[in-house]
Each structure stands twice: as structure tokens, then as C-alpha cells.
Design a binder for these strands. Structure first.
Lengths: 143, 143
DNA sequence: ATCCAGTGTTAGCTCAGCCTAACATGATAT
DNA sequence: ATATCATGTTAGGCTGAGCTAACACTGGAT
């Protein structure tokens, strides 16, 4: 069980999303996305490589290992779970929802993840069955 | 607007709660509560004192300044807001709820705080008015 | 009054994470 | 083929946060 810091999780996630979107990940793009210097990214990537989460050889494209992939997907799952809740139930703005999810995804427990997921599903369903509940919720939170 | 790290928030909160409970705060107790060494607490307290959040003179009892008090109360408010939600709506165990709240209290935004508060109030009220909703929720989350 | 245990402080180390500045590499355009 | 520019790497420094080990203060028991 490779331990990983919140920050390292964030690098991993960013690389994963870059690879998803463009087919590869470049250091300088990661630096731009996270608003840090290339040298900082370099240091971080060396740590992730040490932990066998990414393949990172000098001057080559960055790819994720199997474990890295798995871990990245977990992080993104946590992100999406919180984000859905914030966006569609609490009705936070896109930016607010994302900002909070990006922080919380790194500190939440498995149990919280499970409960939020269940609660989200339940609430969506309940809204469908009970338009009155939905209406009350909407009028409460949006103004 | 004095900037403060999540960790420093945690020290501040711990001191506040100690003072509340026992009338004063001692370094060694703070160290024990946070499971860190006294020297680490010392370093942290010097930073908080620099930032005018606590009064901290060698070998004396620790007290909070006015700004420190205000800040500590904000943190605790955030904690309690999340904790109530986790405990009474998501039905997390005490330990799980506390563990998550203690992390999230340091990273959540003002807007999230507001929305969670409103949502919590709304849901509690809705449960009272609609026992059926409450029953469904309870059976969903407790097992 | 003195000594000891508990409590508080200091020095000096490690690590993660950021920075700047300088250097190296590689791809491209002439 | 070489000069140039974007890109990647290395060196060296800073801060926050932790540690250990040694030292200093204080108050209570003898």
C-alpha cells in the first residue's frame, strides 16, 4: 500500500486527466495546469516514479503504471462523487463545487465516499418521486 | 487578514477547546492531544504568536487573542456544521464523522459552509414534516 | 533549602513542496 | 548543419511541519 500525500494525489490526477484528454502528458502542461514551476513538477514526478505510480524517464512522455492508473481513478471517483453532490444537490456554482471537491477528494474517508454516493442516489430518486420535495430544495438553495 | 495554514488552524482550535474545557491550555496537553512532540507544538505556537492569534510568553499559560478567539470560533463552526451533517444525516459513526470533519473544516469554502448549514436545517425540518422521508433515509444509510 | 519530576525551550536534523537561476536537450526553421 | 526556442533537468534556497536529544525552569516533597 503505497502511501501518497494529498499533493502527490493531485499531480497523479492531473497527469491522468491530461493523458485521457490528449493522449500524453507533458511536464510543462502539468506545471501550467497546477500553476507551479517546472522544477516543482519535476521533483514531484520523481517521487511518484519512486513510488511506482508513473513511468518517468528523462525527456520522455509521462505515462501511468497500473497501480498509478488505479489510484488516479479512485481519486477522480472521489472527486466526482463530491462534485455531484455539491453541484446538483447543494447547488453550488461550478467553480465553488470544483474548488471544494478538489480539496476534499484528498482527505475524505472511504465510508464518507460510500455514504455520500448512496445519499446522492437516494436524493435524486426521491426528487423524481416527490416533485414537491425537489421544489422546496430548489427554492431553498438557489437565489 | 492573517493567513493561516490548515495545521495552524488545528493548533488554534485545540487550544481554544482546552481553554474552554479546563480554563487554560498547556503545551504538553496540546502535544498529547495532537500526538506530536512538545518541540513541534512550541514551534507552531511561536508562529501563531507571531500572527497575533495567541499570547505565548515563555513558561506561561497559553491564551487566545481577540482575533485568535474569533478565528477559532469560525473553525469550530465549520467543524460542527460538517459534523452534524455527517452524523445526523449521513449517519456516519462518531469517529468517522469527526475524522472527516476535522480534515474538511480546514479546506471548505464559505459558500459550502452556508449551503450545508441551510441544507441541514431544511432536511431536519423536512424529516419532522415527512416521517416517511425520514424512514427511507434511515433505512438507506444504517445497516 | 534542596532536589526531582514534570514541563517548557533550544539546537539541529529530515522531508515535502515550493521557488529562482542556470544549464541541457531536442525539434525546427533557415 | 547550425542557431533558436521550447522543453526538461539540476542546483541551491526557503518554509512548514515533524522528529530527537539536550538543556532550563518551576513547584512540590522532603
Amino acid at each position: 500500500m503505497t502511501e501518497i500525500t494529498p499533493n502527490q494525489e493531485n499531480y497523479l490526477k492531473t497527469i491522468y486527466l491530461e493523458v485521457e484528454e490528449k493522449g500524453y502528458a507533458k511536464m510543462s502542461d502539468v506545471a501550467a495546469l497546477l500553476s507551479v514551476r517546472k522544477s516543482s513538477v519535476n521533483a514531484a514526478l520523481n517521487i511518484l516514479a519512486d513510488k511506482k505510480l508513473i513511468n518517468y524517464t528523462p525527456y520522455a512522455k509521462i505515462t501511468l503504471t497500473e497501480i498509478g492508473l488505479k489510484k488516479a481513478r479512485e481519486i477522480i471517483k472521489r472527486f466526482e462523487t463530491m462534485n455531484n453532490f455539491f453541484l446538483h444537490i447543494l447547488k453550488l456554482s461550478r467553480e465553488e463545487a470544483i474548488a471544494n471537491s478538489c480539496k476534499i477528494e484528498h482527505v475524505m474517508s472511504e465510508a464518507l465516499f460510500d455514504r455520500i454516493s448512496e445519499f446522492y442516489e437516494f436524493t435524486e430518486e426521491f426528487c423524481k418521486q416527490n416533485p414537491d420535495y425537489k421544489k422546496q430544495l430548489d427554492s431553498l438553495l438557489v437565489k
